[in-house]
């Protein structure tokens, strides 16, 4: 059984970074990445695509995932807002270090109850999320196997990725990969959807990378959702016991804060990576030996 622990960095098990809320944060982060990159890739190559990685079914699955993500986001937004208020009240009441005070114990119980509510929402929404994520994953899996796995050699795949243009300027339009963009989850999926919905204007080069990126995301997300669903039951039980014994810690706000930053955006989490040094501006030499 957990006891009150006011020290930072000593989270009780149910609120630790390995708990369901943290797992949700992981899931959300993983399903959402690369949207800024996709915005970059929207600078379309004019050559017509010759591979079909995003047929209507995949686009529809993505739209559905976006919609489910929006619902989950809306549901959590309200409860997280309430947790914020309760946390503020807890701090204003100077309950840290005075956990045995009856008023503080009441506040702790309220915090715990709201946390339980958050777990409940996750439990309710995750099956839908799991379903749509799996649908998208399976559709993409089929297309990747067929278009890139069975119809291409490693050489033609390389040529596809170079977009028929091995000149360095191609780098400017290539999508970068993986990373939080600091925007809303539903907004990220909306961008995913919009990007692939207008895939006729995209180069094969971008689409192959994009499809791979989304597919690997969905693969990882499916696993995490399954693990989170298992964890929620355990965390709910522990929190119910805590409610009985009146033990709660405000450190759970840190975990909730992590969920918030991924769900609703977090400026501080944006990572800037230095670009390459400028290349020479002279006309590139092309050897007759080049392939």
């Amino acid at each position: 059984m957990n006891v009150i622990n006011g020290h930072k960095g000593t989270l009780p098990a149910q609120f630790s970074t390995t708990g369901p809320a943290a797992s949700l944060a992981w899931i959300i982060g993983i399903v959402a990445f690369a949207c800024i990159a996709m915005a970059n890739s929207a600078i379309a190559n004019t050559s017509a695509p010759t591979i079909r990685l995003f047929p209507t079914t995949v686009v529809e699955d993505l739209r559905q995932t976006s919609s489910v993500a929006k619902e989950m986001e809306t549901g959590l937004q309200e409860v997280i807002g309430r947790l914020d208020q309760q946390q503020e009240l807890y701090e204003q009441s100077k309950c840290e270090g005075a956990e045995n005070d009856p008023g503080c114990q009441r506040l702790s119980r309220q915090l715990g109850a709201t946390y339980l509510e958050m777990l409940g929402i996750m439990e309710e929404r995750l099956p839908d999320m799991e379903h749509t994520v799996n649908n998208t994953r399976l559709s993409l899996e089929k297309r990747l196997r067929s278009e890139l796995g069975n119809k291409m050699t490693s050489w033609t795949l390389q040529e596809t990725l170079l977009g028929g243009n091995p000149q360095p300027s191609a780098a400017a339009t290539a999508p970068s990969m993986r990373g939080k963009s600091g925007m809303r989850l539903s907004e990220r999926f909306r961008q995913y959807y919009q990007l692939v919905a207008s895939s006729s204007s995209q180069s094969d080069q971008s689409l192959a990378v994009l499809a791979s990126d989304i597919y690997l995301d969905m693969e990882e997300t499916s696993t995490l959702i399954a693990r989170t669903r298992e964890e929620i039951a355990r965390a709910t039980l522990i929190e119910q016991l805590n409610q009985s014994f009146g033990t709660i810690t405000p450190e759970m706000m840190e975990v909730v804060g992590g969920v918030k930053s991924i769900l609703f955006g977090d400026e501080a989490s944006r990572v800037q990576i230095a670009g390459p040094p400028p290349g020479n501006i002279e006309q590139a030499y092309r050897s007759p030996l080049e392939n």
Partner: peptide
């Protein structure tokens, strides 16, 4: 890019 696309393709 090849690393990413091959990982996805080979998983598929």
């Amino acid at each position: 890019e090849v690393e990413l696309v091959l990982e996805a393709t080979c998983t598929a």
